[in-house]
Design a protein around this nucleic acid. Structure first.
Lengths: 239, 239
DNA sequence: CGAGCCAACTTGTATTTACAAGTTAATTCA
DNA sequence: TGAATTAACTTGTAAATACAAGTTGGCTCG
């Protein structure tokens, strides 16, 4: 199902190097082959290579230093809040279990807690809705609700989200990348439902995020609400 | 004191267009002159212009659409949490008053609440320390502590920070730009001091950020701690 | 042996040229 | 008149080339 469309060269190169970093072919501290070497390897020219590297720099995979080279920084961590990965990459995947509270299903939009107005076409199409609970070392830490319009996502509701990042599925299966977004952050006190899911007492402070994410598919937005017990696992992020 | 060093062309162009947007010469929804027009105006070529525009796109000032043009998005808002502006730009400057609780002074580092280890050279040099309170519509909303090493910041402690963004001062006076950083986010309950400063009761949830910011000056980091009463003014951010 | 210089790398900036692809509005033809 | 085509824009991608500037390690000379 992997779709290898006619990507532009610089994106192809970007994807290759990026994969090498995520797969551990290049480790943190390593120095990438020089731009000229990459040119010969990928049979292209410096501007193209540099465009690929620019993107890697921007996303935090590498850093460049004039006269020295491109230094691998590793897979960007904790970008969950600020950048473009899901919360699964924010805390490291070691002891993280994802429990599906509500399996992906098509239903009407629930706009009660939504901080953003829906677009017309979004309301027409149904809504793919699911709830997840992220458990770190047997303690529930994140509780999140995700909603997105049911536009051209064949077989999505039958996909298994456990221990997989939503963003990875969208990226690999549907060629949808999150390109940006906006969010509202606040500290609240846990209500009954949150107390239950996150296993906290009344009066416990909870970090709440209300996000709207923009994707590479025009007009396709992902809405999510995250509730986080930040007592033991402060949310970490780079920007 | 404005230092107009030998900036590369693309940065010059970037600065000019950026200023035009922040100054309101170009308004939200406007379409910038085409890349070819910008070429003739700035006496340069498309790749240079495109590099400047790339940066503006990346920072959210504009969006580009193939076949159409570069659409002005306005001054990026709420990047305070996620991107590179200060909290003053996060809530709009209308009814925002900045009160200096502790004027900038040179003192020893206070590492008690610092989530990051200090570097050696940072500890050797003193620390520039100050505390501010941001007041929205007569209600205190942000309380923040900022620390940075006292390295080559002539006259900094005599500068007036009121209603000015720290980042703007660093940018215009010292040519230091924040290039990125990391932060820890958590929801806490207000302690005595926070209760007093933010005028909230015991048990009130507070959004706490512990940030380390990286700058264009190598080895120069800015550490800040922010406490936010997010009850009425949810922190807004784009990414 | 040691300090300084220099050559061979690295990335950074800039120009020139070419074509592809998306948008828009005017023009043409039925 | 109205729909389809086309021309003239726009940005996107790519190559080839050149030189500037920072880094490194080896070489030379004292």
């Amino acid at each position: 199902m992997r779709l290898s469309k006619n990507l532009p060269q610089y994106k192809v190169v970007y994807e290759i190097i990026r994969k090498h970093i995520t797969d551990g072919v290049y480790l943190k501290g390593d120095i990438l082959p020089s731009e000229n070497e990459l040119c010969t390897v990928h049979q292209t020219t410096r501007p193209t290579i540099r465009k690929a590297l620019d993107r890697l720099v921007h996303e935090g995979y590498i850093k460049k230093k004039q006269g020295k080279g491109s230094i691998v920084m590793g897979v960007p961590q904790g970008v969950g809040i600020l950048s473009l990965s899901g919360t699964t990459s924010a805390v490291g995947q070691e002891n993280l279990i994802t429990e599906i509270i509500v399996k992906p299903e098509i239903r009407q939009w629930d706009t009660t807690n939504l901080a953003y107005p829906l677009l017309n076409n979004e309301e027409e199409f149904g809504c793919i809705y699911f709830e997840r609970l992220r458990i770190m070392n047997k303690q529930p830490v994140f509780y999140d609700i995700t909603m997105m319009p049911n536009i051209n996502l064949r077989r999505f509701i039958s996909r298994n989200l456990e221990n997989k990042s939503l963003f990875n599925i969208l990226r690999t299966m549907y060629d949808i990348e999150v390109t940006g977004g906006e969010q509202r952050l606040m500290a609240i006190l846990a209500d009954k439902k949150i107390q239950e899911y996150l296993n906290v007492k009344e009066g416990h402070p909870i970090l709440h995020l209300n996000r709207k994410m923009e994707t590479s598919r025009e007009g396709f937005f992902i809405y999510s609400q995250v509730y986080c017990n930040s007592e033991k696992y402060a949310i970490f992020g780079t920007f």
